[in-house]
């Protein structure tokens, strides 16, 4: 498989105001294939968001090299779904979804059907003219997902996009995300704290160590696509994988607790 993202020896150190230096990432080596769906799990504060922000060009790594092979010309390289609420309070739902297209100066007549398509997909079409303060937390998150998809990037960066959704909506959105991904096969890097979600969605799962984040393990998800998320949970392959990831994560969380006690 052709590589879409090559990460070599990437570290990130934040220099705090009080001279405190926080090492967020350490010596990350990772190659993400074109069209691959990579899920990232790891303890809170291990640098998952930092990694995505470096890929999005919002943060500069302190050391190492990041190479992003651009896909199709004329298309944006990456679009990010942010972890926190990030839709503009001063734009309507429709204008929020259209934001990326507008920044790229896509003619309004071309924007219109794209925006409508994603509004329908995310179940927001009745709220197209609403302002964010009129939406629930989960709806805001869906606007954020729609905004990233509508921008049609080569690489999707998703930072716990379904974190604040209830179980049913989350399942629907996961199925929808898979449907869209299977149709377009965009490279996707998906951060989650849910092991189930990582296995449901990913081709591979990257497990990170506690801070400073390093690559703890990379696991292949050997489950056929298209996946039936509802029945997946009871398959032996799913359970094995889930147990392995949990085992790795527990080590890391324990190690962190231990370090915390020593401090």
């Amino acid at each position: 498989m052709e590589a879409a993202i090559v990460i070599r020896g990437v570290s990130k150190v934040f220099a705090g105001r009080n001279g405190l230096r926080v090492a967020a990432l350490e010596q990350i080596d990772l190659t993400i294939g074109a069209g691959e769906f990579l899920c990232v799990v790891g303890p809170s504060g291990c640098g998952k968001t930092t990694l995505l922000r470096i890929l999005a060009g919002l943060e500069q790594q302190s050391a190492g090299r990041v190479e992003i092979r651009s896909g199709e010309p004329g298309k944006p390289l990456t679009s990010m779904v942010f972890q926190e609420t990030s839709i503009f309070p001063w734009l309507t739902v429709k204008d929020n979804v259209a934001y990326g297209l507008r920044m790229r100066r896509v003619p309004p007549a071309v924007q219109e059907p794209i925006v409508e398509h994603y509004l329908r997909l995310t179940g927001l079409d009745k709220f197209r003219d609403a302002y964010p303060h009129q939406l629930s937390g989960g709806m805001k998150q869906r606007v954020s997902v729609a905004r990233a998809f509508a921008n049609d990037p080569s690489i999707l960066l998703l930072d716990e996009p379904f974190g604040s959704l209830d179980e049913q909506t989350r399942l629907l959105m996961q199925e929808e995300l898979l449907r869209i991904w299977e149709a377009h096969r965009k490279t996707a890097v998906f951060v989650t704290h849910s092991i189930d979600e990582a296995i449901f969605l990913g081709d591979r799962v990257l497990v990170m160590t506690a801070r400073p984040g390093r690559v703890k393990a990379i696991l292949e998800v050997d489950l056929p696509r298209p996946r039936d998320l509802v029945n997946l949970r009871s398959q032996p392959a799913f359970l094995d994988l889930s147990r392995t990831i949990w085992h790795y994560l527990r080590e890391e969380v324990r190690a962190e607790e231990h370090a915390g006690r020593k401090l």
Partner: peptide, 21 residues
């Protein structure tokens, strides 16, 4: 700050930073 990050990640121009954020 998140709104400035969003604008930046969607490729906003300087004029867009003034007018949309």
């Amino acid at each position: 700050r998140i709104y400035l990050d969003v604008a930046r990640s969607f490729g906003a121009s300087r004029r867009d930073f003034y007018l949309t954020v």
